[in-house]
Design a protein around this nucleic acid. Sequence first.
DNA 1: GAGTGGTCTAGACCACCGG
DNA 2: CGGTGGTCTAGACCACTCA
Lengths: 244, 244
Amino acid sequence: METTQREREPEPKYWHLRTLLSKALDTEFSVGEILPNERELAARFGVARATLRQALEQLELEGRLQRRRGVGTTVAPPRVGVDLSPSQHSWPGWSGDPWTATAAAPAPPPPAVARLLDVRAGEPVEVIHRTLMTHGQPVATEQLYVPGSGEPRLPAAEGPERARWLLRRLQETDASGQDRTVELGAAGAEAARRLERLPGSPVLLVTTRYFAAGRTAAVSVATYRADTCRLTFADQPALTALTS
Amino acid sequence: METTQREREPEPKYWHLRTLLSKALDTEFSVGEILPNERELAARFGVARATLRQALEQLELEGRLQRRRGVGTTVAPPRVGVDLSPSQHSWPGWSGDPWTATAAAPAPPPPAVARLLDVRAGEPVEVIHRTLMTHGQPVATEQLYVPGSGEPRLPAAEGPERARWLLRRLQETDASGQDRTVELGAAGAEAARRLERLPGSPVLLVTTRYFAAGRTAAVSVATYRADTCRLTFADQPALTALTS
DNA sequence: GAGTGGTCTAGACCACCGG
DNA sequence: CGGTGGTCTAGACCACTCA
C-alpha cells in the first residue's frame, strides 16, 4: 500500500463546527434571525458548550454573527464600509463630518501619542472625544489629541462646546497631509462601554497623524468595532489623472 | 450610609490578569524572553488554566506575546509596519516588489471576487499565489486574480515562471488607480499553514482592486498576520501639493 | 423570574517540538 | 522522551435582558 504522506491531520472539532454553521447561515438563515441558544446547539451537535462557543466566536470575529448577553445570537448584517481615504477636506470637523463630539478637556496623552506629537511625556494637550454612529449603532470611538491648548478664548466648560471650538480652530489650520496606521487591538474598558461590547473585544486601531506647516498638528486614535466594520481606502481618480 | 450608585462592577478575572501580565511584560521581561509555562502561571495566579489562557489570548491578539506549541510563550517584538499606500508604481510585480510569487494556475475565483472582477461565477481566471516575508517570518499570503488568461504565449507549467510571466504582463498595462478595503478575518486552513499559525487565527484581510482603462484589471486578496503586522497608509506629499 | 450569553473551574487527552 | 501549548469535557455560577 502506498503511504500517502501528510495524511488526514484531524480537523479540530470547533473548526469543523464553524464550517457547518457557516454553511447553515448561508442557506437556512436570514439577517437578524435568532439562532437556537448555545446549550441547545451544543446538544444538537453533540459537543460541549465550550467547544460550540469556540466556533461561534470565530463566526462573530468574521462578522457573521452577533451575540448579546441576555438576548441571544443573531445573524449579523454585512459589515458597513467606512471610508478612510486621505483627503484635504476630511480633517476632523469638516462640514459633513459624520463624527459627533462628546467632550473635550486638557489631559496628558499616552506616551506613544506624546512621541507622535513630539511633546514631552506628561505634558497636557487638548483631548477631544468623539463617536461615530451608523444605523443607530456605535461603530467607533476616537480620541483626538491637539497640542497648544493655551488659548485665551477657549471655553472653560469641558463639554461639547469646547470640542466644537477646538475642531473649528483645526479647520482653520493649513492642512498639508496625513498618515495612517491600522492594526488589531483589544477594546479597553472605556472603549468597550462606548462601543457596547465587552472588554477585550477585537477592534481595529486606526492612528492618524495630521500635518500642517511641516509639523504634526493633531493625532487621532480611533477604535473601530472589528466585527461590524470594513475600512475602505480609495485613490482619488482626479489626482491620479494629474500624475500622468 | 450613602449608596454609591454604579459601584464596582467586578472586573472579569481574565481581564485583571491581562493587566497584571501586561505590566509585568513592560517592566520585567525583554523581547524574545520565554515566560513560565501556562500551568505554572495559572498556579502562581491561583486561577484555572483556561482563565489564564484567556488572558494570554488577549495579549497575543495585541501583539505582545507569541505562543508556539511545543515551545512556549515568548515576548513578541514590536509589530512590523507594512506600507499599503496607493501609488502608480506599486502594482504587483513592480521592480522592488517585496512579494515572492510561488505559483500560478487558472481556477474559478470565489463568488465575491468574481463580482469584483465582473466575470461570470465559475469562470476561471489566472490565480497567482504570493507570500510576503520580513525578518525571515511569513507575514502575509496573497491570491491575485487576473482575468483574460487566454494568452497563447503563456507558459504551460503551473509554477513560479508562469506567475512571473503574468506579473510582467500586469506591469505593462496602463494603471489608472486602485481601491482597498481592510477588515478582520479568520485564517483558513491554507492561509494558516502558510502563515505558520493555527486555523482561525485573527488576520487582516486586505482586498485590492487594480483599475486600468476604466476596467478592473486584477483583484488581490491578501491575508496579513494580525498579531505581527501594522498596516500603514501615507499621503503622497507630491500629490497633495498639486491640489492647492 | 425565566432564559440568554459570559465567566470560571478541574480535569483529561492530544499534537508538536526539542534534546 | 519530557515538556509545551492546543483541544475538549461537564459542570457551576453570574450578569444581563425582557416580558
